[in-house]
Write a protein that binds this DNA or RNA. Structure first.
Lengths: 198, 198
DNA sequence: TTTTGTGAAGACATTCACAGCG
DNA sequence: CGCTGTGAATGTCTTCACAAAA
């Protein structure tokens, strides 16, 4: 909106732009401290800066990416991260030689053994798991031992980590399943007695 | 569980395995029709089959993947899909020649012009958007025009599509932001007066 | 005026606790 | 007995509606 030259925005506009209810927007923003102006709305820049601060995006978070296969390469190439204040400060792989990115992108791929050292040296706080399901728990354990505070997991498996470690899962298969569920509800697939029986 | 030789499972076991409350498990399963046995639990295979039917995973869903860059390649390589009943029946790209996968994987990359035809021919119902944010809305429009019923969007942008089309978003940046938010709450980053002011 | 911030109402979700059934 | 299925109780989230403020 700042780019569009808007300097003020109302909860109603925000709501319609992102598909929520205006009251929702106000409640949520007010929860963090009420930086709107009655009768007017929210100053766009001020709001943006406040949200950045709240989300913790003012500082740069250094991230360790574990798994340099296709998904790892995609994440490494993903532009969005930088803008949001994330820096992939290290890429590791069980087998650094046989990766999909080699030394392309000028990123050296390290062996897993280097993890504790590199996390400490580069003050890394977040780990991304982009390895197959089989090795995901082991990688998670290593990340925890290396003292990252948060993990973003792309492996389709439920990891167990200490409560103190923030864990977030992105399961691509589950996302598709969610869509499939709604599709089966629709017209075409008749509402057969779904349940019971073979 | 079937693989582990378990033939019966209780809501309590299910709950502890996936981190929910037993009552929650029972409520949710009962909502779809009550296929448990009182005093005993749920028959594992029966439950699995019922869930598959409910989720619509008994049939194979054909998917069109748009965008053959890094992310597209990662999705194409992702094993999990097949097992869940998804088949990437077509890969398209604005510029089929300059893709990250070329003709590797034996998957031919088609030009966008082929979309309507291929969707019809191969009975594709789901589209995956793995293109940069700039072109995502255009791709979405094309998918809608080609009559897919659902879209899984990986571009970091809010798409607008007709209500009849199921839309699901996976925003990698947002996932990280969520983690960052919790990290800022923790010990280290002191709870400075977050709000107001520059 | 206009639009925020917010109690109160309403909707929705989770959990409890127990009747009912195998 | 043991465990499901389910009303009732509790808790949480969303929306309404309006006083307060610019």
């Amino acid at each position: 909106m700042d780019g569009e030259g808007l300097s003020i925005v109302s909860s109603a506009t925000l709501a319609s732009r992102c598909g929520f209810n205006p009251a929702q927007i106000r409640k949520d923003l007010a929860y963090f401290g009420g930086f709107g102006i009655r009768g007017l709305g929210y100053r766009v820049r001020e709001l943006r800066d406040a949200l950045r601060r709240i989300l913790g995006v003012v500082r740069v978070w250094r991230v360790a990416l574990v798994g340099a296969g296709n998904l790892g390469a995609a994440l490494l190439a993903y532009q969005g991260f930088v803008q949001l204040g994330f820096e992939i400060a290290a890429v590791l792989d069980k087998d650094p030689a046989r990766t999909r990115l080699g030394r392309m992108k000028k990123t050296e791929v390290l062996a897993m053994e280097a993890l504790p050292e590199i996390v400490r040296q580069r003050d890394i706080r977040i780990g991304i798991i982009a390895v197959p399901a089989e090795s995901a728990q082991e990688v998670a354990d290593r990340l925890v031992k290396a003292k990252v505070s948060a993990i973003l997991n792309f492996a389709p498996i439920r990891l167990s980590v200490p409560a103190a470690v923030r864990l977030r899962n992105v399961d691509l298969g589950l996302e598709l399943e969610g869509l499939a569920y709604y599709l089966t509800q629709d017209k075409r697939n008749a509402r057969k007695p779904l349940l019971r029986g073979a």
